[in-house]
Amino acid sequence: MDTTFLIAIATMGGLGFLFAGGLALADRKLRVEENPLIGKINDVLPGANCGGCGKAGCYDFAVNVVEGTSKINGCPVGGEDTVNAIAELLGVEAGSAIKMLPRILCKGGHIEAAKKMTDYYGPMSCTAMHLVGGGDKKCSYGCLGGGDCVVACPFDAMIMTENGLPEVIEDLCTGCGICEKACPRDIIEMHPENRSVFVLCKSHDDPKTAKEVCSVACSGCGICARKSEGAIVMDNFLPIINHEQVDASIIPFDKCKTGAIVNIHAKPEPVVEEVTEIEEKAE
């Protein structure tokens, strides 16, 4: 009994010592000199290994940054401080970092969008509404107003307005894109903050239905597509903007009868009132 015990300890100890010694020796003999920058950049990264950059952890991201295959602003968690720190280490300008912001592509709140005959009673969650008949708005594409995005936002950067549409507080937004994933109707899209031309509607309804269900819906007339030299194409009554090509100056915003296509960086014009006037005349 005693001897087995001793032999076991000796064997395992011996094996452990052998392997430890082997590894220590191998580490000395086989060490690969790495760029010291990698370690320095790794130190300024958050170290959460969350994979938000798309790489296999912070260290992998640091390697990619040094090799130039990842952009220095690739870490969505670290934010501006990390970008500046990396930029300082690499001696490059940090200015190229363009923030991503969520854009809410629906203008049909409680006032604009027509209600169904029946009311919705149930959990105030867009996902639940979307599953059971699509909430109480007639439009089957628009914002449900349940606030899933507001709940999902970890930075309290979204609020629900009285009109039942979410709003982004841009100063608090980090551009993480969680709200985009929370929306069951894909109304929220992430875009670089300097993009200005958007169709604030997701409706594929034909012009007649669109007009019935929402006063600000895109009716699908296609005038923006015809006047935009190919930067906008129509897809089943909805204009799709090619953001790489589009030029705000050639889009005929005043021709859009419903005001669905807008330049969000332009000063707000009293478009909505005009629209209601036109509609009243038409009726």
């Binding site: 094996l15 452990g16 392997f19 430890a20 082997g22 590894l23 191998a26 580490d27 086989l30």
Partner: peptide, 13 residues
């Protein structure tokens, strides 16, 4: 013990 140290060594190699 064997597997862990072996893989470490192979990785270095």
């Amino acid at each position: 013990l064997i597997i862990a140290s072996l893989v470490q060594f192979v990785e270095m190699f």
